[in-house]
Nucleic acid binder design. Sequence first.
DNA 1: GAAGTATTGGACTGTCAAGTCCACTTGGGG
DNA 2: CCCCAAGTGGACTTGACAGTCCAATACTTC
Lengths: 216, 216
Amino acid sequence: MGAAPTTERGRSTRQRIVAAAREVVAEKGASAASLDDVGARAPASRSQLYHYFDDKNDLLKAVAEATNEMVLGEQQELFAGLGTWEGLVRWTDALVAIQERHGGEGGCPIANLLSQVGEHHDQIRVVLTSGYDRWEEHIRAGLTAMIASGELRPDTDADWLATSTLASLQGGLVLTQARRDPRSLRRALDGALALVATYRSGERLGDTDRGRPPAV
Amino acid sequence: MGAAPTTERGRSTRQRIVAAAREVVAEKGASAASLDDVGARAPASRSQLYHYFDDKNDLLKAVAEATNEMVLGEQQELFAGLGTWEGLVRWTDALVAIQERHGGEGGCPIANLLSQVGEHHDQIRVVLTSGYDRWEEHIRAGLTAMIASGELRPDTDADWLATSTLASLQGGLVLTQARRDPRSLRRALDGALALVATYRSGERLGDTDRGRPPAV
DNA sequence: GAAGTATTGGACTGTCAAGTCCACTTGGGG
DNA sequence: CCCCAAGTGGACTTGACAGTCCAATACTTC
């Protein structure tokens, strides 16, 4: 950890650096992102970087934290609706829509950081893991609410479904990133929805409304 | 593409280089893997590397191909059994067992390459995508066989379930890689199994044997 | 307005890795 | 035995990047 900024000005400089670093890392990958790139984009000089961060890894750790906030932040409103089936479907639609806007490029920024730096830097891995934990917890909370409201049967295992749903999402993003085709994510999330649907109260196999037919 | 080897000796040198490169890349990541590392491990000298490959990216493309073969190769026998429910369960057990052996480290080598280089090098991305396509096709073929044998209902959408299952696997690997805990993969694959199970002939919701209870 | 602290600028250095070059060896065919 | 192409060895060049250093400037506090 570099020096914590004590003034407003320092805080804003530090924040500018992290934001710039997050962008550069997202665009070029963590290894290819040079401190010169970051400094040019912030803008900030070399000594500013080393004033606020010990070294590149320290900066990447801050980037990991910022990435968590960004990814979870852009779903904040959607998370609030996860307590109903319609909200769950809306959430999946929004995730697919995001990928469609990007042409299937990019994948999940958290997963990318994990592959690029998390695997070899435990501190950063732990940060990214906490992002996944929070993500999963939002899903679990939604499912739990649906159980409480009677929308899902009482024997539903919310922990299991939450992990499984997040995994479908992440895997769908990986396939979409590889294929540049958001339909892989759509199918993956339809799978997750269909599994949750088997726990809807009053549902019977064969007449289950899975919310949508498999899109492709 | 560098020179294709014409002699037996040349072929074995080239092959040694690719194998060494695949290992080094798996251990240190694609960017951190230097040609010196690869040369030292092969062993092969600098000019041999540039004799057989145009540049580092060309070598990484060969690494991507070798990685596909390795990942799919180690599942070859298991793929053959995917035409039955028991074979499907065995396959998931084997995948979890592999992760347990590695302590949850590493994730999927194909996904790692995708994040590290595929996102910015289209040729390599296409190679990795073909790996995923083959993987998915093996699953699809197994499901199709189960439909043909009557084990799954005729209205089962094998394409959808195959994509969804591969996504659960990939996402489970991502979460396992982050958490260093193979239980995330177990849960994800149990989700995939449970979804397939809803299409087993004669099954009714509520008395469905999903093959296993959610493990954790 | 002076002293002290936080913040900033940018030149400089050492290291390391990609890619080049050329001389050398090996091995099979005439 | 000689020739020639395939294969091999490793020193060298070039460039980029992380990290250092020190002086300059902006605030803050009294």
